[in-house]
Amino acid sequence: MTACAIEPEAAPEDGAPQSGCTITADGAYAARLAPDGGSWFPERWTLDGPEPYAVPLPGNQPEEPGTEVQPMGDGRVLIHRRAAGRHLFSLLYPTGPGTGELLIGAVECPEEGARLRLLPPAPGGEKAYALAVGRRSSTVWLVAGGAFGPERLAEIPGRCSGGVWLDRTGRLLALDRETGGRTKAVVVDLERAGEVSPLLQIAEGSDDRLLLADPDSGLLLIRSDAPSPGEERLGWGVLGSTLPVRFPECLRLPDCVVTPFAIQPGQVLLPESCGVALRIDGPVGSWVGLWRPDRRQVHHLAAPYGWLAGAGVWTRDGVLQLPCATAEVPCGVAQVAAPSGETGESGDAGGSGGAGPEDPARGEPARPDPPEPVAPRPVPLQQAPLGRLVTK
C-alpha cells in the first residue's frame, strides 16, 4: 500500500482541529482526532486486519485546537501539543481501559511567528519528523525515533512547505522552498546533514510544487503555473526522466480545486499505469476522482458517506480504500476499484463498515458530468528535466 500525502486544509497553528486522518506509509494504521460532543480526543485505526477497528486514546482532558496526531508503525500514536510557546511530543498507546503516554520531549521555536507541524509519516514507521518554518529559514526535526528525544537534523534557507518522501528508506525528503518570491521543490538528504538539491526547475519564473510521489514507479504529481502564468495547473512527471512535465487538460476542472492524495504502488517502471486518487472540491461539495496518466479523462465518484475527506490509500492490486466515520459506523472503509478500459469505467464501490459512494439519500453531492476527453499533451517548458537528485 501507499499512504496519502496531501496539502493540509488548515495548518494546526491556524487554531482548527486536525481534519481527516493520517495513514502510515504501509497503510497498516491511521490516526485522527475524533469528535466527542464539543471536544476532541485521539483515536487509532487498525486497517490491515480482516475488518477495520478503532481504539480511542483519550487523555485526562480533551485536546486543544491545533493538536496533531500521527500513527507509528508499531501501533502507537504520536501526539503534538502546544503549550506556552513550546511544542510537546508524546507517544500514546492503549493500556487496558486507559491510555498510556510516553513523553518524548519538546521543541522550542523562539523566533516570533515561527510555526511547526508534523511532516507526513515516514517510510518504515519507526521515526517521525516535523518542519519548523521561520522568517528566513526552515528546520527539519526528528521528533520520534531518536536516541535522546527531538533532534535537529537540518536547517534550510528559505521558507518551506509541503513534504513528500521520495524513497522507501526515509532519507530523501522533498520540500517546497520559497526564496526570492518564487517557490521551487527541492530535495533534502537527511543522511548528508540536510544537503539540498533542486528537484523541480520547470521555468525560471514559475512556482513549482511537488504534491505526491511514488517510489516504485517514480511518478510525481506536480502543481505549477508554468504552462499558464497566473493559473496553477496539475501535472505529472517521472523522477529522473528527461521528458517534459505534462499538464493534462482533463485535470483542469473549472471552478474546482483538484488535489491528488494517493498513488497506486507496485507499478515498477510503469508510471503511466498508476491509479491516482483525487479530491475534487467544487461548488456542490467534495467528491472523488480516479485517474491514470495513460487515460484521457477523470472518472468522477460521489464521496462515500462520512468520508474523512482527503484521506485514502491504494492497495497494490488497485483498490482504493477510503476511511469513513459516521454515527452508525464510527470506523469504516469504503473500497473503490481503479478505472479500467479506455473509457475510464470503474468497478462498483463496496465497503467494509461504510456506505457506498453513490447514496443520494444521505445527501452526497451529485456526480458532475465528466469533462470532454482531451488528449494530454507535453507542454514545451524551458527546462524539461526534473532537475538533479542526490542519490548517493
Rank of each mutant, 00 (worst) to 15 (best):
Arg377Asp: 09
Gly289Leu: 08
Arg316Pro: 00
Met72Val: 07
Asp167Met: 08
Asp207His: 12
Trp236His: 13
Ala174Met: 07
Val313Cys: 14
Gly27Asp: 11
Leu239Cys: 05
Ile156Trp: 03
Ser224Met: 06
Glu68Phe: 07
Arg209Val: 03
Leu322Pro: 00
Gly158Phe: 05
Ala338Gln: 14
Val268Leu: 09
Arg279Val: 02
Ser206Glu: 08
Leu199Pro: 01
Leu88Val: 10
Glu112Met: 04
Arg159Asn: 03
Val55Gln: 14
Glu9Ile: 13
Ala349His: 02
Asp26Leu: 05
Leu78His: 07
Val238Arg: 12
Asp359Gly: 00
Leu199Asn: 03
Gly266Pro: 04
Pro17Ser: 07
Cys256Glu: 14
Leu33Trp: 10
Ala193Ser: 14
Asp207Gly: 06
Cys250Val: 02
Ser217Gln: 03
Val284Leu: 11
Lys184Cys: 01
Ala309Asn: 07
Leu153Gln: 15
Pro198Gly: 04
Trp236Ile: 01
Trp236Asp: 00
Leu166Trp: 05
Asp48Ser: 15
Ser161Lys: 04
Glu178Phe: 00
Val143Cys: 06
Ser228Cys: 04
Gly20Phe: 07
Gly134Asp: 05
Ala355Phe: 15
Asp208Glu: 12
Trp45Met: 15
Ser19Asp: 09
Ala338Cys: 14
Val107Ala: 03
Ala5Pro: 00
Ala16Lys: 10
Arg152Ala: 10
Asn60Gly: 15
Pro293Ile: 01
Lys184Ile: 00
Arg388Met: 06
Leu253Val: 15
Ser346Cys: 14
Leu239Asn: 01
Pro244Ser: 09
Gly363Phe: 03
Thr67Ile: 09
Ala366Ile: 08
Ser273Lys: 11
Ala130Val: 01
Pro368Glu: 05
Leu270Gly: 02
Thr46His: 13
